[in-house]
Measured scan of single mutants.
Amino acid sequence: TEYKLVVVGAGGVGKSALTIQLIQNHFVDEYDPTIEDSYRKQVVIDGETCLLDILDTAGQEEYSAMRDQYMRTGEGFLCVFAINNTKSFEDIHQYREQIKRVKDSDDVPMVLVGNKCDLAARTVESRQAQDLARSYGIPYIETSAKTRQGVEDAFYTLVREIRQH
């Protein structure tokens, strides 16, 4: 089974770092803004072998026109913010609204991801993020692309959301 996953969120929150940590098991430290990259990885989730087709997208506003296209083809979405960047957390709402509009559905598989949880300088409390996820009816997972904490959990949870859909 193949799953088309799309990673969305503001610029600099760590979308590529999360994806590369999942696929290649290493942490990319330097920031190089993405336009669009796709990665494929075969994994076993709950005993089922599946192929993850992951689209890593641009957070930069100037590429926002490309969003409709990949939102149409994606089956599930990782909505990523950084726990030390309140603005990126506030941006999640717009991504969710755009996904709902493009998919013409209120019920699209999504996982809210709070990345950079290895950093002490948190400005978005776990509780705020949990409340937001609960209001959307989606899971919330904290990750660190640096330490790998929660990385597999985030992507695998999204696959489970798609399966249950």
Rank of each mutant, 00 (worst) to 15 (best):
T1V: 09
K4N: 15
L5S: 00
G9D: 03
A10C: 10
A10H: 05
G11S: 12
G11F: 06
G12N: 15
V13F: 03
V13Y: 02
V13N: 09
V13E: 03
G14C: 00
G14I: 00
K15P: 00
K15T: 03
S16I: 01
I20S: 03
Q21M: 11
L22F: 09
L22H: 14
I23R: 02
Q24R: 05
Q24C: 13
N25S: 12
H26P: 01
V28E: 12
V28I: 13
D29H: 02
E30T: 05
E30H: 03
Y31F: 04
Y31R: 01
D32S: 03
D32G: 02
P33V: 02
T34S: 01
T34G: 00
E36T: 00
D37Q: 00
R40N: 04
R40M: 13
K41S: 11
I45D: 06
E48Q: 12
D53Y: 03
D53R: 01
I54P: 00
L55P: 00
D56W: 00
D56F: 00
A58G: 11
A58P: 12
G59R: 03
E62Q: 15
Y63K: 09
S64E: 09
S64Y: 11
S64G: 15
A65L: 15
R67G: 14
D68T: 07
Q69N: 14
Y70G: 11
M71H: 10
G74I: 14
G76P: 01
G76L: 15
V80P: 02
V80T: 05
F81K: 01
A82H: 12
I83L: 15
I83A: 15
I83H: 15
N84Q: 10
T86W: 07
F89I: 11
D91R: 15
H93M: 15
H93L: 15
H93I: 14
R96N: 03
R96D: 01
E97L: 08
I99S: 03
K100A: 10
K100F: 07
K100I: 06
D104Y: 07
D107L: 09
P109W: 05
V111Q: 02
V111N: 00
V113Q: 01
K116V: 14
K116P: 00
D118W: 01
D118L: 00
A121W: 05
V124P: 12
Q128G: 06
A129Q: 04
A129T: 06
A129D: 04
Q130V: 09
D131H: 06
L132C: 06
L132E: 05
S135V: 07
Y136Q: 09
G137L: 03
I138L: 11
I141R: 05
E142V: 05
T143R: 01
A145T: 08
A145W: 02
A145I: 03
A145P: 12
A145C: 14
V151N: 08
V151A: 13
E152Y: 13
A154W: 01
A154Y: 01
F155Y: 08
Y156A: 15
Y156E: 15
L158C: 04
L158E: 00
V159P: 00
R160A: 11
Q164N: 07
H165M: 13
